[in-house]
Design a protein around this nucleic acid. Structure first.
Lengths: 322, 322
DNA sequence: TTGTAAGCGTTATCAT
DNA sequence: ATGATAACGCTTACAA
């Protein structure tokens, strides 16, 4: 492994000059700069990041906390990584399986000297408190929830649901139900839409907890049994919609002829179903990019003191189920 | 950030003694060790990994190359991470989106001083060659393919397919077809099974390339049009099976009454379909764990010179589609 | 049984 | 416009 000394030797200058030539911080003769750059190429020199961060105290790793392996998180993370690496940082991914933090997570982050934190649908409030307890400030950006003092990118679910319900109404549906847990943001959008459209408020919250598919299947069953007679259903998620679809198949209800069905998330699953699922898509790439921008600005000290909150809007994707 | 000096001061000993007390390497009085451990606790000391790896030259990060955000890779990676972190290493995940390596990947890995490499379905032959070109040996473990000189965990697909076909036959199916690309490992298992069972060899390779779902749908259509009259189908993947299922629905074929259908992978999707898909499951956690063991052994220098190749067996999961 | 000190590769302060 | 050198926190050979 060539070090900066080797480069200096090769170029016939001092290490200080190599530093100036590569990163600025003082005047360097053009001819010398060229010699240095050539020497870097020839030696295959790449600065040792361990040494750098030991010296500067600044870390070069950004940690991402991710709820285990979910397709949506991965899409966001992918976009996030690209921006982060383009800015010269490295991405350190930590999977939080089953809601449990890895043992000694804070320690390992401190030891690694992480420069910042990105939370993909996992709250890091406690974790950041621990950092503060050690006298460290850890810049952070979160998705879809607000950690106190952290920047955030929020998803405007109400808007997405509202658009979907309006679209159902535009297709002639008059009894549009909401199926799923009592999530305030989704219910807000649904409630606003049916009120504005003058349609009945039809909501069913299945109280099942074991997985979204069976929740969707059983919830749909109950919805039908309660004689709500829906001709359209906005589901909490694609997974729940898949369950609802199973119920319709079982009962011989045709989708979309008898009942139109809309999901939420636009998972790849939506394309695999019969019929293919109309759904509200999250702009995952945009989310990842925005999170990276926010965090990078803070790492560069170019962000205001107060947390920056941004909002992204989901988009309706029309398929066979409506 | 407390350093080892602070701990030494607090405990009233030298840094050398702290080192011995914490990591061994010489005798330490019990009483002194206790004082040191107390001081570590009180100071909240955690060794600075940048300094350590600068000094030792050994990295503490293991890099994982992953084909972007796939659910199966994530499950394996999750298990992999747990073992790696338990061994005191950190995991550095790199997503290879769309088959393209991030620009300057080798450089960034060198600079990070990664200790080892894990390839989840991405070949790293070229990458490791580049490392060798710089005079660095990079221990590596791969999944599902053999990189020269690297350890590997292979999936015994033939066994999995064979078991599935036998299961179809046991349920009375006599015309079992294989639907999918001409993947040698899967075809091997299929061919062996139908031969052993004395059943006809019915194979259709759709030459469509645009996504596995439409490939499954169109492939199934062609399979039926060719009058192969299958009463059972082993698909290349769950995604293809989902497409095949769509075709059956469209044509009014009942699954499993008219045709039984088996997928491969056991994605979460399999539970969302109607009917729920019987499929060949990959033991993802085991794969991740084994890869970690192999790599850790090599990092500790406890592995033989020759590459170690292990094999894991998939398992049939019976659901509604058979 | 314990302590001293060198050195890893970088950055940055100072002098030239 | 350039160079010598100290310091970051850690590990470890060597001295005591």
């Amino acid at each position: 492994m060539p070090s900066i000394k080797d480069v200096a030797m090769k170029a016939g200058v001092s290490v200080r000059t190599v530093g100036r030539a590569l990163y600025g911080g003082g005047p360097v003769k053009d001819e010398v700069r060229q010699r240095v750059e050539l020497a870097v190429k020839q030696a295959g020199y790449a600065p040792n990041l361990a040494a750098r961060s030991l010296k500067t105290g600044r870390g070069y790793l950004v940690a991402a906390l991710v709820a285990s392996g979910d397709e949506l998180h991965m899409a966001r993370l992918d976009a996030f990584q690209i921006e982060i690496e383009a800015a010269g940082f490295g991405l350190h991914v930590i999977f939080i399986s089953g809601g449990k933090e890895p043992l000694g997570l804070v320690d390992s982050l401190v030891r690694l000297g992480v420069a910042g934190l990105a939370c993909f649908h996992v709250s890091a409030t406690r974790l950041r408190k621990e950092f503060e307890g050690r006298g460290l400030r850890l810049p952070a950006v979160a998705f879809d929830h607000q950690d106190p003092g952290a920047d955030a990118v929020l998803l405007d679910r109400p808007r997405g649901i509202e658009e979907a319900v309006h679209d159902l109404a535009a297709k002639g549906r008059r009894r549009i139900a909401y199926l799923g847990p009592a999530d305030p943001s989704r219910l807000d959008g649904y409630a606003r839409a049916v009120r504005d459209l003058g349609l009945p408020y039809l909501v069913h919250h299945p109280d099942l907890k074991d997985g979204e598919i069976s929740m969707g299947e059983q919830g749909m069953q109950e919805l039908l049994d309660k004689a709500m007679q829906p001709d359209g259903v906005q589901a909490f998620s694609d997974m729940m919609a898949a369950g609802a679809l199973r119920c319709c198949h079982r009962r011989g209800l045709r989708v979309p002829q008898d009942i139109a069905l809309v999901g939420f998330d636009n998972r790849r699953l939506a394309l695999c179903l019969w019929p293919q699922l109309t759904t509200v898509a999250q702009p995952n790439e945009e989310i990842g990019r925005r999170m990276a921008c926010l965090l990078l600005a803070r790492l560069r000290g170019a962000a205001p003191d107060a947390p920056v909150i941004e909002s992204v809007t989901p988009m309706l994707v029309r398929r066979e189920s409506t």
